[in-house]
């Protein structure tokens, strides 16, 4: 009586559009970053400009990632049923929008620092572990965090083509990208007190939200109580 659905033969619009969006955002973000960086170099002649832009993009991208993960924790928090606004559909839209912006600023961060001859990172250093000459361990954490975050985003964008039991666990596990990115920020960019405070407070905020999300009483817990 019930039909177990077969996967669609031709990829439907949603998945392709999502991948296209991710690609477009990455390319345009990177291009924009390169343009801005070269623009700064040529106009001001200030060698520090790309470095400053790169770091600013990094911090922005980190803050966006924090907001993204916080919203993800809200989306799956057992207490979410009491939250009426934004609506569940709007929450997911916001989660996706934050992903796009995080991606833009990450792309800017990576492209600017990879193309900056004085940064000691280079394209290989920005893409692969332990290939940067500048603080290789710290940069590697960022690189792994970036790939892990991309994995989380891409699998989620492919939801509907990937079965739920594939993308959902990956999506949750890969969100630990934030831990790697946090360490990357602290080790590679925690050189002023203001930034140290920023990393400490946002880190604690996410940790508290994650603790609350995973210890809160769920409907399943209530059901277990009934069975006792």
């Amino acid at each position: 009586m019930t039909a177990r659905p077969s996967p669609p033969r031709h990829a439907s619009v949603g998945g392709l559009r999502a991948i296209g969006l991710v690609a477009a955002v990455t390319v345009s973000g990177g291009a924009a970053g390169a343009l801005i960086a070269s623009g700064f170099r040529s106009v001001s002649g200030n060698r520090m400009a790309p470095w400053i832009i790169g770091r600013a993009a990094g911090i922005t991208s980190y803050l966006l990632l924090v907001a993204l993960v916080l919203l993800g924790l809200v989306l799956s928090h057992p207490w979410r049923t009491r939250l009426t606004r934004p609506s569940p559909a709007a929450r997911i839209q916001l989660h996706i929008a934050l992903t796009v912006f995080t991606l833009v600023f990450t792309a800017l961060h990576v492209v600017v620092l990879a193309t900056d001859r004085f940064a000691g990172v280079g394209w290989w250093g920005a893409a692969l572990p332990m290939r940067a000459s500048y603080r290789p361990v710290a940069v590697t954490l960022g690189v792994v965090g970036m790939w892990s975050g991309l994995l989380s985003g891409i699998t989620a964008a492919l939801a509907g083509h990937l079965p739920g039991r594939v993308w959902w666990p990956i999506h949750k596990v890969a969100a630990v990208a934030l831990i790697l990115v946090w360490l990357h920020g602290v080790l590679a960019g925690g050189d002023t007190n203001a930034l140290r405070w920023l990393y400490l407070s946002t880190g604690l905020l996410v940790a508290a939200a994650a603790f609350s999300r995973y210890t809160a009483r769920t409907p399943a817990d209530q059901l277990a109580e009934l069975r006792q």
Partner: peptide, 21 residues
């Protein structure tokens, strides 16, 4: 049906299905 099939596949709890009646 295309959208429904995607939603059915994506559900991590396998809570959706398409029923013929």
């Amino acid at each position: 049906l295309n959208r429904a099939t995607a939603a059915v596949a994506a559900c991590p709890k396998r809570a959706l299905f398409i029923q013929d009646s």
